[in-house]
Amino acid sequence: MSFDPNAFIIILTGSMIAISCGLLGVFLMLRKMAMTGDAISHAVLPGIVIAFLISGSRHGLAMVIGAGLVGIIATVFIEYLSNKVKLQSDASIGITFTSLFAIGIIMITFLANQIDLDQDCVLYGEIAYVPIDLWITGSGTIMGPRVTYLSLINLTLVSLFIYLFFKELKISTFDKEFAATIGLSTVGVNYGLMGMVSYTTVSSFEAVGAILVVALMVVPPATAFLWTKNLKRLIQLTVALGILASFLGYYLAFFLNSSIAGAMASVAGFFFFLSVILNRKQIPAIKKKLSKMKVA
């Protein structure tokens, strides 16, 4: 097979998105907040629409800020419902994310004739268009595929966030109360993480859509967790799985002539079930993990 620059760009972009999602997903999983990640990735929809209305563009900083803010609002709301109103946490998540998502859908339908933004685009994305969607500067210079730049910036910021706050993330994930007693702002760490989840969702939705973002946040970390009980190893394996899903997903889609994002998610899912079978001894532990993830 000869070198195909389009394939390279798609796989590179897919890998960078998968790594960003996986890095955050490891901590979401360990915090039993996989569903919160899911909720946020859907809840940012109204933020995307409002930012679009204000800035008139599907790209750019307004989008990231708008969605980031709604993501934080969703987090605050979920915490409020479960801590102050004493609603069960799964119900709090469900209510928050369905309401915000519904608001977003209503906005899109109402404004359908005014804006170039549809549900399909938000939910499923289209990574195949990445190579032809170019970033052209004001002076007309062609810089290259826009979404690839976005995902590079996103990956850099997510990696930096996790690198700089590794100690804080680790301690507040393992033992929140202990972390609070040594004066760490556990609330701050939580909002930081949720802010990064929101930002990553927005940065990636054009390429892979909100649903695949969730798959990439949940599946590779859960797969890696079947193989290792060492946090650094867990992160490395998650990164490797993300790259592998992107690479194999591209060629699977190519040969099946289907959606690349869908194929990436399928490959990730395939590795998960393969790991389950190979780790048959550990099946009870996985069940425990999954049931915990559901209620969190």
Partner: peptide, 13 residues
């Protein structure tokens, strides 16, 4: 804290 207050499945030594 009480031992049960954390999840000992956390990946750490």
């Amino acid at each position: 804290p009480q031992r049960e207050s954390v999840d000992w499945d956390f990946p750490a030594s």
